[in-house]
């Protein structure tokens, strides 16, 4: 079992865990933006509580903890790969295109994680009733959370580009 002690084994293992957690996160993000939000106005008013009280809290649980796990596993992966600090500096000075690319992907992912935990979740807590709020405050919270969620949907496209491009850019190290 010597191979289990080698970074060579753990690097792809943590990459796989990071991607699985990322699917949990971005899968729910896209569910909210592609399915739930556009469908809500079409649902009869008396049926909407089924979504808000039952589906939404469950989806938000997997969504926010998927985001947390993706970030933590991503930082571990970057550390195992030996480029954590260089990537956080956007690869400046490394002359390594892969580190430039993963650095941009990491920062976009960090911004998205911040949006989840510090904008979307505090506002959604008002929507699902975990935080007490007046009906006006609930409407404002729903709008703010929705806009931050849309920003994350927009950022998920360049984020995934940079993340996937980095380890597959074979010419990047000599670019």
């Amino acid at each position: 079992m010597d191979f289990l002690a080698q970074a060579d084994f753990w690097r792809p293992f943590f990459r796989w865990l990071h991607v699985v957690a990322g699917i949990m996160w971005i899968g729910h993000l896209w569910y909210f933006n592609f399915t739930q939000t556009p469908t809500m106005p079409k649902i009869p008013t008396e049926l909407r509580p089924a979504v808000v009280r039952y589906i939404l809290p469950e989806a938000l649980f997997w969504f926010r903890w998927g985001a947390m796990l993706t970030l933590i596993l991503g930082l571990i992966l970057a550390w195992l790969n030996g480029y954590l600090l260089d990537a956080l500096k956007l690869g400046i000075g490394t002359h390594n295109g892969r580190i430039v690319a993963i650095g941009w992907g990491m920062w976009l992912g960090i911004i998205m994680w911040f949006n989840v935990w510090f904008i979307i979740w505090p506002n959604q807590k008002k929507v699902i009733g975990l935080t007490s709020a007046t009906p006006d405050e609930v409407n404002a919270a729903r709008r703010t959370a929705g806009l931050a969620s849309r920003v994350n949907t927009m950022l998920s496209i360049p984020m995934s580009y940079a993340m996937i491009f980095a380890p597959h850019w074979y010419g990047g190290m000599t670019a």
């Binding site: 592609f34 956007l90 390594n96 690319a101 849309r150 949907t153 496209i157 360049p158």
Partner: peptide
């Protein structure tokens, strides 16, 4: 900005436009 974000498809197109810009920036910085 808010009207763009209220439209799902405009948001997605904006994401792809940002991706093209990012690809150029990454290539230039590499």
């Amino acid at each position: 900005m808010e009207s763009l974000l209220n439209n799902l498809w405009a948001t997605i197109i904006a994401g792809f436009v940002l991706t093209v810009i990012l690809a150029i920036v990454i290539r230039a910085m590499a």
